[in-house]
Amino acid sequence: MTDHERLEPYLLAFPGPLRDRLVAAVLSGGKVTTTGLLAEYEAEGEELPRAGERLALIDSGGREVAVVEVTEVRVLPLGEVDLTHALDEGEGYASVAEWRDGHERFWHGAETRQALGDPDFTVDDSTMVVAERFRVVERTR
C-alpha cells in the first residue's frame, strides 16, 4: 500500500461535468479555495478538514489525480464569505454575488438536497459554510 492509498478522498461537487471543471481548475492552479455546507458534514458524519491535512483529489472517474494539502479552514455564515475567497474558487466569478448565485444553484439542486435528506433545503445569509484553502502538493496523473 502506498502513502496515497491511505489518504482520504478530496471530492469536489458530484461526479460529472462540474467536478471535471473543478478538478481541472485545481490542477491548473486557478482554484485554491472551495466551500461546502456545514450541514453536509453533519449529515454524513464527517469530520471537518484540518489545516495540514493531505487528501487525494479524485476526478469523476474515481481516479486520484493529485494530492492536496488543506492550508486553512474557516466555518462562517454564508453572508460573510469575502471576495478573495470567491475569486480564489477559480470558477470565473467576478463578485461575491456571482459566486453566491452559482453556489446557491448547486446547493438548491436535487443532488445536494438528496444528500442532505431534505427536498426543501435552502440557504440564507446565516447558513454555516466551511471555507477551505488548499494547495496542490503533488500531481499523480
Rank of each mutant, 00 (worst) to 15 (best):
W99R: 00
K31W: 02
E98W: 05
T84R: 14
R54Q: 14
V26C: 06
G52Y: 06
A25C: 10
E8K: 14
F14C: 12
H4L: 15
E47C: 00
G29D: 11
A110K: 14
E53C: 00
T34P: 01
P49E: 10
P9I: 05
G90L: 04
Y93N: 13
G30H: 11
P77T: 05
L38E: 07
E69R: 15
G16V: 12
L87S: 03
D59K: 10
G30N: 12
D82S: 14
H4D: 15
G52W: 04
T84H: 07
G52E: 09
L37N: 07
T35D: 08
E42W: 01
G102E: 03
A13V: 05
V32L: 04
R100N: 06
G90M: 04
R63P: 00
T71W: 10
L78K: 00
A25M: 08
G16M: 13
D20I: 08
D20T: 13
A13S: 15
L18Q: 10
D88W: 05
H103P: 00
E91F: 01
L76P: 03
L76R: 09
A110F: 04
V65N: 10
Y41W: 12
L27H: 07
E53F: 01
G109Q: 09
L11Q: 10
E46T: 03
A94N: 12
A25E: 05
A13M: 07
E44T: 08
K31M: 14
H4M: 08
F14N: 12
P15A: 13
A39L: 09
A66C: 07
G16Y: 13
E64S: 13
D101V: 03
S28Y: 00
P9G: 08
G61H: 13
E111S: 15
R74E: 15
P77L: 06
D101P: 00
